[in-house]
């Protein structure tokens, strides 16, 4: 349990214990309504496909997809591992690029004026359309995938972090300046920690974009990965396999999203203002 008192040097005896994460029972009661709806949809889907005699080529039934997933489990897992690497490495580079860009723009006024309009301009380029160009330049390997993930995912990170860096309390800025704090001191001691909640808001958007980036890059040209598998299955009219890969890539995105939430919770032990109820 990560109560905010966890970071205090001397635990405050009077501080009320306040759980910030629901227990398993609460989690279950939060999840079961949507799980029930999902189950109902799957049952209806199965029944409708059978009742109307829809071909498995057009719409695979949940049972066929489940069977296919099990049968092709090794193929699917190998492909998932390739895509996971693309997303994770690409996302890590996106964080580095996005944070660095935001910090530099916040630190140097001339960069704010020189770079910021270009970053916004770059945002209107349909990044997906860059995939064929990256393939042309860098071939079928990992590099073009990482590049596409980065160009798609860095922007919300930079934008949110920048808003966070600029959201510093004006009174605090005045105080820091009054004791002769340098711009670097203000940046590192106040602005960067202050921006953390904004950064995580950006990361949450960026991780889902990173998944899209990896899959699209695989569509454009790949020899492995879940995106490649979807395209391959499409040419083979193997609809159940398409759905298997689609479901797996969705679960991958979900897992990465929650993985990041865990990092956020861990970091909130040191910087409790990341949690919305503390701000």
């Amino acid at each position: 349990m990560a109560t905010a008192t966890g970071t205090a040097r001397t635990p405050a005896p009077a501080a009320p214990e306040r759980p910030d994460r629901p227990g398993p029972r609460a989690w279950l009661s939060a999840v079961w309504p949507s799980a029930l709806v999902l189950l109902a949809v799957l049952v209806l889907w199965e029944l409708a496909a059978v009742a109307f005699g829809v071909s498995q080529f057009v719409l695979a039934t949940p049972s066929a997809i489940a069977a296919e997933t099990w049968a092709s489990r090794e193929l699917l897992l190998a492909a998932a591992w390739v895509t996971t690497q693309e997303i994770v490495y690409g996302f890590a580079i996106s964080i580095a690029v996005g944070v660095l860009l935001a910090v530099l723009i916040a630190r140097f006024h001339w960069l704010d004026r020189a770079l910021y309009p270009l970053v916004v301009l770059f945002q209107v380029v349909p990044k997906v359309a860059l995939a064929p160009i990256f393939i042309l330049w860098f071939g079928y390997g990992l590099t073009p995938k990482l590049l596409l993930v980065v160009v798609i995912a860095f922007f919300p990170i930079t934008l949110n972090m920048l808003v966070g860096l600029k959201s510093i309390d004006s009174d605090l800025l005045l105080l820091m300046r009054s004791v002769g704090a340098t711009r670097n001191q203000i940046l590192l001691r106040v602005q960067v920690p202050t921006s953390l909640p904004y950064l995580f808001a950006g990361l949450r958007i960026a991780i889902t974009l990173a998944v899209i980036g990896a899959v699209v890059a695989e569509f454009a040209g790949a020899s492995d990965g879940l995106g490649y598998l979807i395209q391959f299955a499409s040419t083979q009219l193997d609809t159940p396999l398409m759905f298997s890969a689609l479901i797996l890539v969705s679960l991958l995105g979900l897992a990465l999203y929650y993985g990041m939430s865990l990092v956020e919770i861990a970091l909130a032990r040191r910087f409790p203002h990341i949690r919305a109820d503390v701000r």
Binding site: T7, A8, R9, D169, D171, L172, L174, L175, S178, V179, R189, V190, P193, T194, R270, F271, P272, H273, V278, R279
Partner: peptide, 17 residues
């Protein structure tokens, strides 16, 4: 350091004790 300032709002760092 002969002048100490106390602004209108406390302006504390939320992650510091």
């Amino acid at each position: 350091r002969q002048i100490g300032l106390v602004p209108q709002r406390p302006a504390l760092l939320p992650w510091k004790t």
